[in-house]
Design a protein around this nucleic acid. Structure first.
Length: 463
RNA sequence: GGCGGCGUGGCCGAGUGGUUUAGGCAGGGGCCUGCAAAGCCCCGUACGGCGGUUCGAUUCCGCCCGCCGCCUCCA
């Protein structure tokens, strides 16, 4: 039984299901006004791992993640670049999918776009106004936060405490500084939709509450996103649902930051590395491994050094796949449970599940994978082929459960010149001409290959 | 000011009131190898500081120091 830390209660609790065997997740996706950075990649990976683990456990998972394609930032950026908002959004949405595809993050089952749900957003806002919890001002419609029971749940602070910290200067016509905008009345030149309050566009918090409820229904199991979304974004989504008398998500999950020199990576601080940069200079799987190596709620530091460490660890797992010619467990999509059987290492699987069930302890789960790798090699060295194969197969399957694909054979194309060097080296070794064999190894190494001698002769792979 | 998190061996990063260790990377020694590589075995006696509780604390409590986050757009 999976237990997860719930931001709303501050405790680790079992993930209760509306319907046995089925689980629905809504994860706030990106606002597509710029290229995604490492932080976006982390949230995509964290929730991909959660999703894969639920599938691994045999659950029927519905995963929804939106694209925010209308927003202040998009309007601003489009104006700067002299392009239309929809054109800009489409460009960065493409960049988004390209990056997460490279990370082997599974595509959501549904990807609602905010612009496709405006009519329903207007309906919600009108309902909130009719219920007397929202009010109109000269620039928009606002939710009266003081009228929502339990406001402050996700901030983990009571309303009064939040009010004390709020910035009063941005209050305008709002009744309380914490009241937030549901509908923004149009300013000249902005894209607009019709509403009872005149042309305008929805507020960000209204977008996600409408899309999640529409696609997943009331009482869906889990709503997630980066920790910075807990307050005010998720708080405000929840407030609208509560104010409208609807049951919202029953569990809240937030991932920690990617940090740079200990500070949160963000667009506003300007200390970000784009996903493209990282993926261009390292194995995309290394970032997944890096994310898995620490707990999802902890901050992670991504540096050339930690990336290199992850790549080295990956090399070890790939070597395992190569040695045992393991089949790719992700060849036909994600690993779907129930998983088990006599040809797998039961205790190791149990250890893996035990770690994952405990609030997604991926570092612990990974330890189980590496442990299997070591045991597979040790058993093979000792001549126990059966045990070795079982451990190796189990390691690959569990790695696959985490979305980590191991690369064994196949690999890089060997150019004719290098292939010739390999042939000549085998001949030299057969003739016990070590000086010549060593010279040929040097040549191969300077051509970028890693050279290994096995029972079947010289083997090379890219360094 | 309010609320919250963190500080673990060379690096990354889990975890736990004590008798046996996370795991990975790097390093040292050994086995294997023509030499390597890969793999396996062994090794380093770590838990910010000061007190307290306890037979015993890295793990619980208090204080202190340092770092970070949220309270405003943000994954």
């Amino acid at each position: 039984m999976l237990r997860l830390f719930d931001t709303a209660t501050g405790e680790v609790a079992p993930l209760d299901l509306r319907t046995p065997g089925r689980v629905s997740l809504y994860v706030c996706g990106p606002t597509v006004y710029d290229a995604p950075h490492l932080g976006h990649g982390r949230f995509a990976l964290v929730f991909d791992v959660l999703r894969r683990y639920l599938l691994f456990g045999g659950l029927d998972v519905t995963y929804v993640s939106n694209i925010t394609d209308i927003d202040d930032k998009i309007i601003e950026r489009a104006a700067e670049q002299g392009v239309g908002e929809s054109e800009l959004a489409a460009r960065y949405e493409d960049a988004w999918w390209e990056a997460v595809d490279a990370l082997e993050v599974l595509r959501p089952d549904e990807t609602p776009h905010a612009t496709g749900y405006v009519i329903r957003m207007v309906d919600l806002v009108a309902d909130l106004v009719a219920r007397g919890v929202a009010y109109e001002t000269t620039d928009g419609v606002y939710l009266s936060v003081g009228d929502v029971p339990g406001y402050g749940l996700l901030a983990r602070q009571p309303l009064e405490s939040l009010r004390a910290g709020a910035r009063v200067e941005t209050m305008g016509e709002k009744h309380s500084p914490l009241d937030f905008v549901l509908w923004k009345k149009a300013k000249p030149g902005e894209p607009t939709w019709d509403s009872p309050w005149g042309p305008g566009r929805p507020g960000w918090h209204t977008e996600c509450v409408v899309m999640s409820l529409d696609l997943l229904g009331e009482g869906f199991e889990l709503h997630g996103g980066g920790l910075d979304l807990a307050f005010p974004h998720h708080e405000n989504e929840r407030a609208q649902a509560v104010a409208a008398g609807r049951t919202f998500a029953t569990h809240w999950m937030h991932n920690g930051w990617v940090t740079v020199d200990g500070e949160k990576m963000s667009k506003s601080l300007g200390n970000f590395t784009s996903l493209d940069d990282l993926l261009g200079r390292s194995d995309p799987r290394a970032y997944r491994l890096l994310v898995l190596r620490s707990h999802y709620r902890s901050p992670i530091e991504v540096t050339p050094d930690t990336v290199a460490q992850a790549e080295a660890g990956l090399g070890r797992l790939d070597e395992l796949a190569r040695r045992f010619a393991l089949a790719d467990p992700l060849a036909d999509g994600p690993v779907v449970g129930p998983v088990g059987g006599g040809d797998l290492d039961g205790p190791a699987l149990d250890a893996f599940v035990d770690r994952m069930d405990d609030d997604l302890d991926t570092p612990g789960a990974l330890a189980a994978v590496f442990d299997l790798a070591r045991r597979a090699n040790a058993a093979a060295d000792a001549g126990d082929g059966v045990e070795a194969a079982r451990s190796a197969r189990s390691a690959a399957l569990l790695a696959g459960g985490l979305g980590l694909r191991l690369r064994g054979g196949g690999g890089a194309e060997v150019d004719p010149h290098s292939a010739d060097l390999v042939r000549r080296r085998d001949a030299a070794r057969a003739a016990r001409d070590w000086a010549r064999a060593d010279g040929l190894r040097s040549e191969l190494e300077s051509a970028g290959w890693l050279v290994e001698d096995g029972a079947d002769g010289t083997r090379i792979r890219p360094r």
